[in-house]
């Protein structure tokens, strides 16, 4: 009797679980169709319920499309806009370096890690230059995830893993929508060579050139003494270093030049520098004398103008790269 009761209970539970599985499948189907329909309508409604910044700021779509056809490079750049606006691939080519700039807007170490894992075999770089701006190590990486996922044509296991690691349901929603739109249905995208709104021009190899004479110089920034580095981001940095080592790739952590006044507003720079120094070879260019002028060589508080990029890149190649050339 007791055994029968147990079996019957188990059957009930199995039926219950089967029903849950069935409803999950129906729900997944409704969700995929519903997201596609809502995504279409939302092009016109422009609500905030579905974050899908495809073709947004920073030419991420063009860069992530281009990288799929790139192989065997000398240098791979990773990081935020400081990277894709700071390392001009044309200048490096002039000096004989074949490079690709895989920086994206607000890219945090978590995104850098998955982009690196996704592309390292195919790009096969000799050196990785990983820009580490402490702000990107202090945030959760959700905004950057939206940018990357929305602008990826072919979703991979690494993109899914990135969403899971971020543990954000909104990111998961964008992932599902992008998967249907970009990967399954292969919706046609757009050309984004020149963004008039931002005066941004995409350069082959991932660099974005800002053609502006409108310099937004400020001399006063409030003092910032707090630093809230995220444990997840710090462990992502460690993993990036390990991935590089395991693939026999030299990695250099860098902190690209910031507007001097802005940089001085941070009181914790030494702490960040010593932390990064303990992890790998690290260069903070704000501590070196590059003769950069806040009004001429920056177009805002933390981005170099084209003149600044030229000066910085020349310095970087001659003083850093040439010294480690095999």
């Amino acid at each position: 009797m007791a055994l029968n009761l147990y079996i019957s209970n188990s059957d009930k539970m199995i039926n219950f679980l089967k029903k849950i599985m069935f409803i999950s499948l129906i729900s997944l189907t409704i969700t995929l169709v519903g997201l596609k329909v809502f995504g279409y309508i939302n092009q016109y409604l422009k609500t905030s319920f579905l974050k899908y910044p495809a073709g947004g700021y920073g030419h991420t779509y063009t860069r992530l499309s281009e990288v799929e056809n790139i192989k065997n490079i000398d240098i791979l750049f990773l990081g935020s806009s400081h990277s894709y606006r700071g390392f001009d691939t044309r200048i490096f080519r002039k000096y004989g370096y074949n490079t690709f700039n895989l920086g994206t807007s607000g890219q945090t170490p978590i995104q850098s890690k998955f982009l690196l894992k996704k592309h390292i075999k195919q790009l096969n770089p000799k050196i990785i230059i990983f820009d580490l701006y402490h702000k990107t190590s202090s945030i959760n990486g959700v905004e950057s995830a939206f940018d990357i996922i929305s602008n990826t044509k072919n979703m991979s296991y690494f993109d899914l893993k990135m969403c899971i690691e971020i543990k954000d349901i909104e990111v998961l929603k964008t992932f599902l929508y992008s998967y249907i739109n970009n990967t399954l249905l292969k919706e046609k995208f757009f050309e984004e060579t020149f963004k008039k709104k931002y005066n941004d021009k995409y350069i082959i190899g991932g660099f974005v050139e800002k053609s502006t004479s409108n310099l937004n110089y400020k001399s006063n920034f409030p003092k910032i003494s707090e630093i809230g580095l995220s444990k997840k981001q710090l462990s992502a940095i460690d993993e990036i270093i390990n991935v590089s080592k395991n693939n026999n790739v030299k990695i250099i952590l860098v902190n690209t030049p910031l507007n001097k006044q802005y940089n001085l507003s941070y009181e914790h720079n030494n702490y960040f520098d010593s932390l990064m120094n303990s992890k790998a070879e690290y260069i903070n260019f704000n501590k070196l004398n590059l003769s950069l002028n806040d009004t001429i060589h920056f177009y805002d508080k933390d981005h170099l103008s084209q003149k600044g990029v030229e000066l910085f890149n020349k310095y970087f190649i001659e003083k850093v790269l040439d010294s480690i050339k095999p």
């Binding site: 729900s27 969700t31 519903g34 997201l35 809502f38 579905l50 349901i169 929603k173």
Partner: peptide, 8 residues
């Protein structure tokens, strides 16, 4: 469930 995901 779709609405819960969409409006999350």
């Amino acid at each position: 469930l779709f609405m819960i995901l969409l409006f999350y």
